[in-house]
């Protein structure tokens, strides 16, 4: 394990090519090339700029919150940090173990039993065989599945699936924790317990990057906030300042509309 975790993002831009219709078809590309229309076709390719010129430097102890409207690029940025989307421009350097909580049901298969799902998750994370019994015990304990552990997830109640997904996602302790807001969903009884576990995980992580619409949560957990809009950084600074700026915006609009 690396001594100290760090994330360095330099001038990163992410462009999404939008493939639709004929650009998905080899036949049409070949026909276009043969008839000399390829150049024109390349220009017609629609590209969406998901992130533009992102610069970010995170070190031990940083707690970063990502705010912004839907489609601002929060999840894309998390995916870039996790190394899922490789930058088309710029550079990303990450050291330290990383866990990205992006999809609550990652690799979960409803036809498998709870126990099998736990083992599969361990394999996904490249854990050594010796770590698997501990993982199984921990998840089973937390998710309170008792006898259901050996039954297929297909027959679980919705709440049980949420508990299992959450327990799995939070069972592996990383140095760098990336979280999307999905984990805040869940039934209320479960939430208190989930909160304790999550807080513990957040505390033990060197770096936290949290994306959420819920500014109260951001305020509570994050010391620094990055405000994204249409893939660009609008503001980056201490949580209080940026959040005030961010929350101030919707309040200003009606005034200007009136004026």
């Amino acid at each position: 394990m690396a001594d100290s975790a760090s994330i360095l993002v330099e001038n990163v831009s992410v462009l999404f090519p939008l493939y639709h219709g004929s650009s998905r078809s080899l036949k049409k590309m070949v026909v276009a090339a043969a008839s000399g229309r390829l150049a024109q076709d390349t220009h017609q390719r629609v590209v969406v700029r998901a992130l533009t010129d992102i610069n970010l430097n995170l070190g031990r102890g940083d707690r970063l919150g990502l705010v912004g409207s839907n489609g601002a690029g929060k999840t894309t940025l998390l995916r870039v940090l996790a190394g899922i989307y490789e930058p088309v421009m710029g550079r990303l350097k990450v050291s330290g173990s990383l866990n990205a909580l992006l999809d609550p049901n990652l690799g979960m298969n409803v036809e498998l039993t709870g126990r099998e799902n736990i083992l599969l998750r361990g394999l996904y994370n490249g854990l050594p065989k010796s770590a698997l019994p501990r993982l199984e015990e921990d998840v089973a304990d937390f998710a309170e599945l008792s006898d259901f552990l050996d039954l297929p997830v297909r027959i679980y109640s919705a709440g049980m699936v949420v508990r299992l997904g959450f327990a799995l996602a939070t069972a592996i302790r990383p140095q760098i924790l990336l979280m999307d807001e999905w984990f805040l969903a869940g039934d209320a009884v479960f939430m208190d317990k989930a909160r304790v576990r999550l807080e513990e995980m957040v505390r033990s992580a060197d770096i936290l990057v949290l994306s959420s619409h819920n500014t109260a949560i951001i305020k509570e957990w994050c010391s620094r906030v990055l405000w994204l809009d249409q893939g660009r950084i609008i503001a980056d600074g201490p949580a209080g300042d940026v959040l005030n700026q961010y929350l101030g915006l919707p309040a200003e609009q009606p005034v200007s509309a009136l004026g």
């Binding site: 990450v94 173990s97 921990d138 592996i172």
Partner: peptide, 20 residues
């Protein structure tokens, strides 16, 4: 019942550059 999280993630170091 313990809520202690004990399994440690496997370390990953990344260095991705666009123009390589």
């Amino acid at each position: 019942m313990s809520t202690a999280v004990s399994t440690i993630a496997v370390s990953t170091d990344l260095d991705l550059k666009a123009d390589i």
